[in-house]
């Protein structure tokens, strides 16, 4: 009997603070935001170092961008213009869903244009349009620990970072070059930040690795499930781990161009042809592609875009 009275009391007080009066700006309560904000500052001060944080649950599943989302929600203001991309694409279902949640909780303006955004949350890509000073790029990170594959234990990895002992990592890369003649890591290529910490750049393609180096924008990384966040301030050195005789290279896209905009200097997605004969290629960065098409059509003075759009 008593049990039910308690439940009722609890319920009314929770409802009072909960949905009926609206959530706090940015969904997270101010206490949680303060903690994340403090941790982000430390992350910025120690580039590439993984700062542990509490990582509260939010209404998006773990592994679906919670780390990036917690960072975004902790720093965003009503004046921000937000862009969210998944694999370079603004219209991917999960990007749309995250954007919907953030704008629902902040009322801030959303955009697909890289140049217009003040805050960009991304999964697995760095936009192909160069970022500008003042912009913030927030990465969703599945596995923040670059050493995880050589040492699964969190505590041992922590010690290796503390001592700057990356021997095991170099051994792994060396073994790869012996076995395959190259380092075969595709996405998530390990990088050295400010000459001190080896960092996981999140599963971006190699194509994006050189863009991290001395970028104009502030790069923030959030791994919600693993409860770690880290950062690369603007103009900070980010170098891929490489051997002198086996230099780092980006994806080989020679002879390929986006079939929509003709670009050769953006990362291209491969799409197998319906007829099974080879592949088509098009930009992974949908905003870059549509801007490029606009430029091309302006140059040619005809409306090429509409036709192409109809074909997607």
């Amino acid at each position: 009997m008593k049990l039910s009275t308690v439940a009722k009391g609890v319920e009314s007080s929770l409802f009072f603070n909960g949905p009926s009066t609206g959530y706090n700006f940015g969904y997270l309560n101010e206490e949680i935001k303060r903690e994340i904000r403090r941790k982000i500052l430390k992350a910025v001060a120690i580039p590439g170092y993984q700062v542990p944080y509490s990582s509260p649950e939010i209404p998006i599943a773990r592994g679906w961008g919670t780390g990036g989302l917690q960072i975004t929600l902790s720093i965003i203001g009503p004046e921000d213009r937000l862009k969210v991309i998944d694999q370079g694409c603004d219209d991917s279902v999960n990007a749309v869903n995250l954007k919907r949640f953030i704008s629902m909780m902040t009322g801030c303006e959303v955009t697909t244009e890289t140049t217009m955004a003040t805050l960009i949350q991304t999964r697995h890509r760095v936009p192909d349009t160069p970022l500008k000073q003042g912009q913030i790029l927030v990465f969703q990170v599945p596995i923040p620990e670059p050493l995880r594959e050589v040492e699964p234990k969190v505590e041992l990895c922590r010690r290796m970072h503390a001592e700057g002992d990356y021997g095991l990592m170099w051994v792994r890369l060396y073994e790869e070059t012996v076995r395959w003649g190259r380092v075969t890591v595709g996405a998530r290529y390990p990088v050295l930040v400010h000459g001190r910490y080896v960092m996981d750049p999140s599963p971006i393609p190699r194509w994006d690795i050189p863009k991290l180096n001395r970028n104009e924008a502030l790069l923030l990384f959030g791994a919600g499930r693993e409860k770690r966040l880290y950062a690369v301030p603007p103009h900070t050195s980010v170098e891929p781990l490489e051997f002198e005789d086996v230099p780092f290279t980006v994806e080989d896209q020679r002879g390929k161009a986006c079939e929509l905009c003709g670009s050769r200097d953006s990362f291209l997605d491969e799409i197998p042809r319906e007829d099974g004969l080879g592949s088509r290629w098009c930009c992974s960065d949908t905003d870059f592609c549509s801007r490029k098409r606009l430029e091309v059509s302006r140059a040619k003075g005809r409306a090429l875009i509409l036709k192409k759009d109809a074909r997607i």
Binding site: T21, G22, Y23, F25, M105
Partner: peptide, 10 residues
Amino acid sequence: MFTLTEEVLR
């Protein structure tokens, strides 16, 4: 859906 106070904004 959400409330934004002066304090929070500041």
